[in-house]
Design a binder for these strands. Sequence first.
DNA 1: GATGAGATCAAGAATCATTCTAATTCAAAA
DNA 2: TTTTGAATTAGAATGATTCTTGATCTCATC
Lengths: 148, 148
Amino acid sequence: MKLQAPSHEEHAMPVDLRMTPQRSVVHEVLRSSFDHPTATEVFLRSKDRMSTISLATVYNCLDALIEHGLIRQVNVDRDSSRFCANLNDHVHFHCEQCGVMMDADPIEKLDVTKFWKLPQGCQVTEPAIAIRGLCPTCVDKNQKVASR
Amino acid sequence: MKLQAPSHEEHAMPVDLRMTPQRSVVHEVLRSSFDHPTATEVFLRSKDRMSTISLATVYNCLDALIEHGLIRQVNVDRDSSRFCANLNDHVHFHCEQCGVMMDADPIEKLDVTKFWKLPQGCQVTEPAIAIRGLCPTCVDKNQKVASR
DNA sequence: GATGAGATCAAGAATCATTCTAATTCAAAA
DNA sequence: TTTTGAATTAGAATGATTCTTGATCTCATC
């Protein structure tokens, strides 16, 4: 049973999602977080706003929000998934030392077929790009240690 | 205690690793596999050559081989890690439908700073790139289903 | 060849993120 | 108000990986 009018298929962001209090809280937590929290971190922050919410519900809400294009899931290696409410086209910079994750906005569109020879007959959906390195804080930290 | 002469630091592939029968088997399994098997798959294939080998040992051997640069670990999302004996510079194409993973060789080097605005002060180590899409087999399969 | 120290191996327990299950609650349509 | 399917919840289950511990092996030296 559809609870709201179905979204237009051609839109990137469907809206036929029942906005329950729990889903609102999870969404709001992510929209006010800039550090790409894990599910457990989202759960802890959600509890501040709704003390009865459970971890299972947070997982359910994250799934629903992802499915409806309201948030994005970010994976780097096999670390816990992280979540992100920035829907603009962007990739993630991941600090190998402290694990912090930062958004990096595109300058120009990458055509993967210009850079890699794909096996004959493949259909590309999307490249998954994570840029690894050291964040400014860790670069500083290492310099101080090195100069002692 | 060093068991063999230390490798030259400037070489990409250190060799001071004791090549035990178990490590040889795991390495050989990977060198003769072109499908990027998971640890469990490596374990099953290794048992054909050495029936007494354990999963724990396969994990230990994989770690040792990675640490010494003889194989590479490949992660896509939070799926089980896969392993790869192709040491040439390459990225991975991952089929979203059947999960198969294929190597894609580079045409030219990608300078990530040309394509994305990194946060001020970041030091880039390496981009982690996985290209998602449909493999030729799944493209075919879908066409047949669609044309019925 | 025997010995000792450290490396490696193996089995099973432990961990941890995530998913599943089943019972309960809720919200919108009839 | 009743019905019906969806959402929530707590806790169990899953599954990949890591840890622990004791046994075994290897090499350098005696």
